[in-house]
Design a protein around this nucleic acid. Structure first.
Lengths: 205, 205
DNA sequence: CGTGATCCTGACCGTTTGGTCAATATTCTG
DNA sequence: CAGAATATTGACCAAACGGTCAGGATCACG
């Protein structure tokens, strides 16, 4: 009984696949899937176009690999909500973590934004499957807290939407945010203060 | 002294320009600027490609015309906030209006989302100019209300961001919202209930 | 009804783009 | 170090795309 398909990678494969994904993240997140070109990715990864296609069979494959690689990281903060912790503290920590991800990984945020905007052609199974399960689990935790009177009663799924919308807004619409605020502002710092206040008031039991 | 450039349009011009813009809205809002093709727009508008380019000199021009045509409509609800009205009622009315626009004009919402995501190459002057002024005016109204103790004191610009983020989320990420909610839900109806509650709690003086 | 302005299109062009392929270079391993 | 496996690339291709152009159809109007 041997390993069916041992995904053993050579040192070079590991390095180059990583280089390509790095370059692709930059390209896809600034221009969208159709706006990015393999040439552009190859140039950024400092290799020839055929070599890029040697590691990933097609542009689509690069894109799909990127999304699946980054999805776990993107969803991680929500899974770290601790049912045994203090409800408000747990949620505020989640908001902060999500906002920090927008600040530290805006390209990832935009990548997903483009994908969802376009109708999530590469994420349909994830949306209806894994994502929904993760959300459902979190919803159960939230509803438990609400039943116990430790959290104000609000529609939990829309609460989650609101957190996603607000935090990702700072990354996805950063240009607009900065244009409106003008220079000399730290959108994320101010946003955190605002969101902290908002969710405290909304969720206080 | 004659009119410098009387923009008088023939019946046909009016009809065809409108048809093209209609088709372009559909195309740009589903595939983004680079994802949409002139062929596609021409087909949807039921005319030949050269004819599309007879009315609009280039793909870029169509896009720009769309954005400028729709921008006023998009920003209108905020300008209808009445400084003499009841603060909370005015804001809740704005939230409702914005949410209705997401529901009734999701394509417009996505069009702007794509544009901002991409760095707003066609909206830079608007972002730094007109938009900022409109926001500034609204901010003054909000700050006036807060000074008078008729509204809880929160950072007004981030309050506006939150309204934009939340309401547009339902249009721009509709696929994700529906995937998470599952069938048998009215995202906009539920969203309105949630947001009403949220802003009541946040803004009660 | 005629004639000038407006409207419309098939055919075409140059460029870009995703992807292929044969050939060469490099690395790994016995 | 030999030879097999892996890695890399220049040259090339077909399709898609934005845009042009010359010529024909249609319309408005005296």
């Amino acid at each position: 009984m041997t390993d069916a398909a041992p995904p053993v990678m050579t040192r070079i494969q590991q390095k180059n696949r990583d280089l390509i994904l790095q370059a692709a993240l930059e390209a896809f997140s600034t221009n969208g899937f159709r706006g990015a070109t393999i040439d552009q990715i190859a140039r950024a990864a400092q290799m020839s176009k055929p070599n890029v296609l040697y590691y990933f069979g097609s542009k689509d494959e690069i894109h799909k690999a990127l999304l699946t690689t980054l999805l776990d990281m993107w969803l991680a903060p929500m899974q770290q909500i601790d049912p045994r912790g203090d409800p408000l503290a747990e949620i505020l920590r989640y908001v902060q973590a999500k906002l920090q991800m927008s600040r530290d990984f805006p390209r990832e945020s935009r990548l997903f934004a483009y994908e969802i905007l376009q109708g999530a052609p590469h994420l349909t199974e994830v949306l209806g499957g894994g994502l929904r399960e993760i959300v459902d689990r979190t919803v159960e935790v939230l509803e438990g807290w609400m039943r116990d009177g430790r959290l104000a009663s609000v529609e939990p799924r829309h609460l989650i939407f609101s957190i996603w919308a607000m935090t990702q807004h700072y990354a996805d619409f950063e240009i607009q945010v900065r244009a409106v605020l003008g220079p000399g502002h730290d959108p994320y710092q101010e946003g955190l203060v605002f969101l902290d206040d908002l969710y405290r008031k909304l969720l206080a039991p």
